[in-house]
Design a protein around this nucleic acid. Structure first.
Lengths: 232, 232
DNA sequence: CAAATTTGTGTCTTTATGACACTTTCCTGT
DNA sequence: ACAGGAAAGTGTCATAAAGACACAAATTTG
């Protein structure tokens, strides 16, 4: 296989795809971490990801999805590119680039599978400091969290941390966990109405109090975005 | 050179870095395009960019800057990652990934240099359809334009299309060119005050009318962001 | 059946932008 | 020199969406 166009091919940078998979579990924001089976940073914890398989993947999106499915057995409800991180020193093997995605799932969708394996687990973002984290993945997770927080202020993205059917209180809760601050229930209701991306179904009981309306995301709708941020 | 960790190294994807360099010239948004000297798409027009040189570049940011300097002789005033574009088919040589940056410069900074070379030129975005464009660069430029438009609605980023000293009218004009719509002068003034990122200097004459206040960006300030979008 | 609790509604306040009139300053032409 | 035009800059009211909060409705628990 000749490569006539690129004389530098022999020193191409290392290129990987990693994902920061978030969920909200027990009222806290969690990230999926996997134990590394290979050098470098063997036995430390890192983000799920790896090399593109050019025979299987049609794009890096598919690489990210494939790697996430390997670890969780399901596709995340939301997946979007965060950004690439690169440096000559972040990997001891040399110049490396990792294209990072961030993703959301409902905890119920994956935890039953996660609990059966011991090379993958949910890590509470508050407890990440206690973990031996590979590469610059701690920094990457911070960046992903920041982006997710921003998105939560002007879009309905956090709904993808919830199961198919959910209540306003549940949506309010995941938003609050993501942005780390209480929001006005009334403001959320106004946005739910204005977004037109949800469908009201029938009731469901919740702790004390009146029955709560159950919603689902309408099929094939776009994620609603708003002109204004919620205040922080 | 052994690569014990990565058995797929021999079919690593092609990895390049490209930039969409914008400026506002003659009241229109323009992009820097360069004539390709190599296959594939030789002699067609594409984005400035190329392969990482791992002996020179410390990161992909530096790759983007290096390639832009080669074509314009100066560093852009603003540079930020857009996103990676990848597919098995976007390059005839096989699976390829291009990490795309978008950048802004004042037209005055570079046009004198651009005009001396014939393998690089400013292309009016409205006239891009008439050009033979390599790869998926036309699509990429559209994405970059969209991102720039969004940024212009909630940040002061467009100021980096202007020279060091500028007036409110000039800033208003570049914003309007970028978003393709008139904005309220008053709203812009309010944002200039609130941002605290500018310094007022002394006067300067403009077409008819009263002398306009000249501003410059304070040294080392962060780009101001606003909680609310300008309306579209 | 009363108290507690959560859902859902009504409405007033707050804040930044949109719209637009009005004043100020400077240039130009006669 | 002066009138008129033109752009710069200010003042202010309207608008829109979020914040704050009271209150009513529905359901569970003791």
């Amino acid at each position: 296989m000749t490569k006539p166009y690129n004389i530098n091919d022999f020193k191409n940078p290392l290129f990987t795809v990693d994902s920061v998979l978030f969920t909200v579990k027990e009222g806290r924001l969690q990230v999926l971490m996997v134990r590394r089976a290979n050098e470098p940073f063997i036995h430390q914890w890192g983000l799920p990801g790896g090399f593109v398989d050019v025979d299987i993947d049609q794009s890096t999106d598919e690489t990210a999805l494939r790697k996430l499915k390997e670890k969780t057995s399901v596709a995340p409800q939301y997946l979007e590119q965060l950004q690439a991180f690169s440096s000559a020193y972040r990997d001891p093997r040399g110049f490396s680039v990792t294209l990072v995605y961030y993703a959301l799932v409902a905890e119920q969708e994956v935890s039953c599978h996660i609990d059966t394996v011991d090379d993958a687990k949910w890590v509470d973002l508050e407890e990440l400091d206690d973990l031996a984290v590979a590469f610059d993945h701690r920094f990457i997770i911070e960046q992903a969290q920041h982006r997710l927080q921003q998105k939560a202020l002007y879009s309905m993205v956090p709904v993808y941390c919830l199961p198919e059917l959910f209540t306003i209180a549940q949506l309010k809760s995941v938003i609050e966990v993501i942005i780390g601050k209480e929001i006005q229930r009334k403001s959320l209701i106004r946005r739910i109405d204005a977004s037109e991306m949800f469908e009201a179904l029938d009731e469901k009981v919740k702790s004390g109090g009146r029955l709560a309306q159950v919603y689902k995301v309408k099929p094939d709708v776009d994620i609603a975005h708003f002109e204004r941020n919620l205040s922080m």
